[in-house]
Amino acid sequence: MSKKTDRREPPPDPQQLPGLVDAHTHLAACGGRSAETVAAILDHAAAVGVEQVVTVADDMVDARWAIAAAEWDDRCYAAVALHPMHAGDLTAQTQAELEEMARHERVVAVGETGLDYYWPSRSPDCASPQVQAEAFSWHIDLAKRVGKPLMIHNREADRALLDILAAEGSPETVIMHCFSGDAAIARECVERGYVLSFSGTVTFGNAQTLQEAALLVPDGQILVETDAPFLTPHPYRGRRNQSYCLPYTARFLAELRGVSDGEMAAILGGNARRVYGISS
């Protein structure tokens, strides 16, 4: 089988690891745009032990899909916000709609929001850093007003992002989605009480710095996610990700941190249910 053909094949099912929650996925981008397709994705995940998922919005259309998915299937919860790339879409009208969405009973976080300094110089469609910062501040305030966790997107903007959170005042719960920083940034986040969520990137062969960061996060402040359909864990990097792949990353974290797979799954799943306020 050629490498190109191989990458078209979905990763095989991992061995079952009960108790997990996918703390961040994108069901619509995975093909979940109807009650039937969402159920199929979640059935596949449940078969390997991934019991619940949080599906996350990038833009207004995605936010509507996320809430619909959470209404279709009680294993699914939603997070809504404008991704920093789409920060320019924040207007009085979208603010009003996002606030209404954020108060929805199936929405468990405001996100993903934050800063992305990678794309502005590479895409004319990406909001400028200044526009991103203004939208980020608004989302921080929204999370505080609705009393829900703030889910952070951060790409190459560690210091600026942490400075804005400090200046605005962090909500009670801050989730650093797809944490990508080094040990020093991880330590600062931990000291602030933030929750660090690790995706398949932590399993990559060139991720030693990220693995060092994952080692120092206390048990009560760590989550696991797929960010599907992206960031498929090793050894299936480059293939299309989905929530059923989560046990690969959970098992990697267990080995890295020197605990059993079952203990790691209980920690990760328990943290997600507590942080998001969802029942088992």
Rank of each mutant, 00 (worst) to 15 (best):
M151I: 02
V21L: 12
L253T: 11
F179S: 02
G238F: 02
A160K: 11
W72K: 09
D261M: 01
G181Y: 02
K148G: 02
Y236V: 00
D22H: 09
T201Q: 13
I164S: 02
G200H: 03
A213W: 00
A102H: 03
N154C: 15
Y276F: 15
A135G: 12
A186W: 08
L215R: 15
V202P: 04
A143R: 06
E71M: 06
R274Y: 00
D74F: 00
L150T: 04
A133M: 09
I140V: 15
H24C: 13
P129L: 04
Q95M: 14
T173E: 04
T249Y: 10
L17V: 09
Y194I: 01
A160H: 14
G220Y: 05
S279Q: 14
A45Q: 07
I267H: 02
C178M: 02
L196G: 09
G169M: 05
C30V: 01
A69W: 06
V275R: 08
G238N: 04
R159H: 05
V108Q: 07
P12I: 11
P149N: 12
T226P: 09
A183V: 14
D6P: 00
H177C: 05
A167C: 01
R145E: 09
L216A: 00
R75H: 13
L246M: 12
C189D: 05
D158A: 13
N241Q: 08
A63L: 08
V131W: 01
A135K: 02
S279I: 01
D182K: 04
A78H: 12
D74Q: 13
F198C: 08
E105D: 14
E156D: 15
S121D: 15
A57E: 08
T209R: 14
V80A: 06
D163M: 00
A160R: 12
I175P: 07
H139I: 01
A29Y: 12
H44I: 00
V107L: 09
I152Y: 01
R237T: 14
N154V: 03
S279L: 08
A79K: 05
A265F: 08
Q132R: 11
N271V: 07
Y248I: 12
L231W: 05
P129I: 10
S170V: 02
V217E: 07
A66T: 13
R274V: 01
E134W: 01
A143V: 01
V190E: 05
R8E: 14
V190N: 06
R251S: 10
V53C: 13
R103Q: 12
A66W: 04
T25Y: 03
C30D: 07
P120M: 06
I152S: 03
R251D: 08
H153L: 03
G205R: 15
A69D: 12
A47D: 15
S128A: 09
V108E: 03
S2A: 11
A81M: 05
K3S: 07
T173Q: 14
V54P: 05
V110T: 07
A186T: 02
S34L: 11
N154K: 03
E51F: 02
G200D: 03
V21C: 11
S170K: 12
L115S: 09
L20G: 04
P11Y: 11
L27Q: 08
A266D: 13
I185L: 15
R122V: 07
A143M: 06
